[in-house]
Computed example of a mutant assay.
Amino acid sequence: MFDRRHVLGGLTFASVAVMSRSVQAGNVTTQAGPRFAVTIDDFRFEDGPQQNGAARHRAILDALSAAGIQAAGLVTGKHIDNVEAGSHLAAWSEAGHAIGNHTYSHAYYGGSDPGDLGADIDRVAVLLAAYTTQRPWFRFPYLAEGRTVEFRDRMRGVLRDRGLRNAHVTIDASDWYVNQRLLERLARDPGADITPYGDYLVQHLLGRAAFYDGLAREVLGYSPLHTLLIHHNLTTALFLPRILEGFRAAGWTAVDADTVFAHPIYQAQPDIAPAAHSLIWQLAKADGRFEARLRSPGEDGPYEKPAMDALGL
């Protein structure tokens, strides 16, 4: 597992805030309570404990269908570059869910030698061309957009040259770490009670959602349409209905991904370097008033380890 420790050329922070407030006044965000889209990264279909790859994918599709929402899948090419995975992605598209580019290799583009992002994007773009719900959305692996201003602007230029938009995350979290811990537990004890892992995951995601929404209200003056990042893994397959119900019970409303990514906040290009983490984190960093609130990285497994250890998870 990669360790995640390790506003130029677009709308300025001020113009995003002004545009977003005008959209709010135009009834895009008038519904009471915060709203969010489900975005799922790293589609993987290999078999594993509890469910094989096909069953995991079907469970995720069924949960989204039951909720009546359109999600976005940001796919990594190396995991879908085969006939079986292609059929699963076709089912995703046929269900009306959006598809975006997450590179072919899932390399880290926030380091000292970021490599050829354009080639990495183009290789997976060929695989996505046939799907009717493909969108011009791109998400950086590990949400890492560039270590320096030079690298950041180079990366942004690669997207601009291809007509792609950064599919920013506003609610970042460590669901991948909860999944990792669950897999480790099942490897030791295949009959273990998995319910506490779902309990922990739901509360973790709600806690991070509350943090980022609260920070957004301070930075922007309102609650934007959010994007929740989760991954195409066992915990999502097992617990997505509970996640969606937990958000609903907490006053959140699930919204289609197309609606959320149309919000002008997703055109923001905060003037910070390194450029990484949640978009809300980046905007708060660019603002300059919230340094004491911003841990780096924004989310990571070690933040969750003590609590999970204490619970015996």
Rank of each mutant, 00 (worst) to 15 (best):
Thr132Pro: 12
Thr133Cys: 00
Gln134Glu: 09
Arg135Lys: 08
Pro136Asn: 02
Pro136Ile: 05
Phe138Ile: 00
Phe140Arg: 03
Pro141Gly: 00
Tyr142Asp: 01
Tyr142Pro: 05
Leu143Gly: 06
Leu143Ser: 11
Leu143Glu: 13
Leu143Asp: 11
Leu143Arg: 10
Ala144Lys: 07
Arg147Glu: 14
Glu150Met: 08
Phe151Asn: 15
Phe151Gly: 14
Arg152Glu: 15
Arg152Phe: 13
Asp153Arg: 12
Arg154Ala: 12
Arg154Leu: 10
Arg154Lys: 08
Arg154Cys: 02
Met155Ser: 07
Met155Asp: 02
Arg156Gly: 15
Arg156Thr: 10
Gly157Gln: 02
Val158Gly: 04
Leu159Tyr: 04
Leu159His: 02
Gly163Ile: 01
Arg165Asn: 07
Arg165Leu: 08
Asn166Gln: 06
Ala167Ser: 05
His168Trp: 15
Thr170Val: 07
Ile171Pro: 02
Ala173Phe: 01
Ser174Pro: 02
Ser174Arg: 04
Trp176Pro: 01
Tyr177Ile: 09
Tyr177Lys: 09
Tyr177His: 07
Asn179Lys: 07
Asn179Ser: 01
Asn179Phe: 06
Gln180Thr: 15
Arg181Asn: 12
Leu182Gly: 10
Leu182Gln: 00
Leu183Gln: 13
Leu183Asp: 12
Leu183Asn: 10
Glu184Leu: 11
Glu184Gly: 14
Glu184Val: 01
Arg185Pro: 06
Ala187His: 13
Ala187Phe: 03
Arg188Gly: 11
Arg188Tyr: 09
Gly191Phe: 07
Ile194Pro: 03
Ile194Ser: 00
